[in-house]
Design a protein around this nucleic acid. Structure first.
Lengths: 225, 225
DNA sequence: CCCCCTTTAGGAACATGTTCCGAAAGTAGC
DNA sequence: GCTACTTTCGGAACATGTTCCTAAAGGGGG
């Protein structure tokens, strides 16, 4: 624990930990035991400090997770964006999706107003890219924001639902899927029957995204171009 | 506490509470003090029983919330569905959305595979309506399920994000929205600037839904019709 | 009327996130 | 070296969801 030699002129008891060290330790724990095992007390133990001391460096656990997400998104490298507005939107939205999907615990933090409200500058390029591309396509400012928000909702929903679906512990008695549908009440679902889990398990984010972008752009620009 | 007079021939210690009573008490508490105040111990107190006794009637708190959501959705009256497939999908999806949006705490339970995995028959008509309408429009079974899932993601995302946005307590120092964007890095966001909160606050679920349905149906049926 | 079996009740205890508040460890002025 | 002030630390304590385990309350057979 090489604590820095008193940053000169500083007054008061010297900190024993920094936010950076906390984030590093948190990542270490997550990489090691999975993010479900990340608890305040465990994290404090990893740092060799008291649990409540953490609260002098982070507001609360959600804050910690947002910070971690920030860090993660910030380290992502920014892909080449296609020139066609529609493709650019799809590329940026996919980048958002992939960034979130890779971190299941992001689900605990998502929501709020997402990137825009919580995350720092490092993630904003995705928002900017979508809004800019929508503008290039002819959307007004309001329409462009609408495009972004709609895609954000879709993306968050996809990530959240898929993140929590395997949430069911193996010893959970709750049936993951009802075996039989009442053919009289819900004939189509009954016809699908056993195939539902297989169909619902497929990754169709990109297909849905394309459809959504098509619909949004068609709706936005009215009779022009 | 008029406990039923021993359901005849029953063996073992008589129950002092039923699941129905628990649900009723839970609703009472929610209506009274808001759903954030619904805690296991408070609920038990309301029923005049021990806290752990509840766990003999419900699996866990999430289970309780799902049960309440079931009950709520089941009491909804089923609207007239338009005949045009596209309009029917929009009507059914809107019904899902409104059912969820009315119960902010639904957000805590959503996810999983949503209606299909968790809720009981009373909510399935919405799923059935969407899948059936997609079929009427010419979608294959797989495409119809894709349509439903995509709309489900969008709907869940919208409900979750909007439910948690006012989540910020008033005494929360975390800024709800950064005041200034770096015009060099994110010019479009900077141009929007102050107007973002106003734009993001608008309810655009229906517009987005329409766009999404248009896109999904156009994508699904390929060269036919 | 007593003992066995079944079913439910509920207290003790634990893990977790979090708040409170007094103790600890420095610097600055004297 | 002592006192005052500032900043950080961290234990005690609390609310909550949950699991464990033992006690309570019945019926049935003898």
């Amino acid at each position: 624990m090489p604590r820095p030699p008193a940053p000169r002129g500083r007054i008061g008891r010297p900190p024993v930990t920094s936010r950076a060290q906390i984030l590093a330790a948190a990542r270490r724990l997550i990489d090691q035991d999975g993010w479900e095992k990340l608890t305040i007390r465990r994290l404090a133990a990893e740092l060799g400090i008291g649990a409540t001391t953490l609260y002098h460096h982070i507001r609360d656990k959600e804050d910690l997770l947002v910070l971690l997400l920030d860090q993660h998104v910030g380290q992502l490298e920014r892909p080449e964006l296609p020139s066609a507005p529609k493709d650019r939107i799809i590329a940026a939205a996919t980048a958002m999706h992939d960034a979130l999907a890779a971190w299941p615990w992001a689900a605990e933090v998502l929501s709020a107003d997402g990137f825009v409200g919580l995350l720092d500058e490092s993630a904003l390029w995705m928002v900017e890219a979508i809004v800019a591309a929508a503008g290039d396509h002819g959307c007004t400012q309001a329409e462009a924001v609408h495009v972004f928000r709609s895609l954000w909702y879709y993306t968050v929903g996809e990530v959240l639902v898929r993140a929590r679906s395997p949430h069911r512990r193996s010893d959970d008695r709750r049936p993951a899927h009802r075996k039989t549908f009442d053919a009289a009440r819900v004939p189509h679902l009954a016809a699908i029957g056993e195939q539902w889990p297989a169909l619902a398990g497929q990754d169709t984010y990109r297909d849905g995204l394309r459809a959504f972008v098509d619909g949004l752009l068609a709706q936005a620009t009215g009779p022009s171009t």
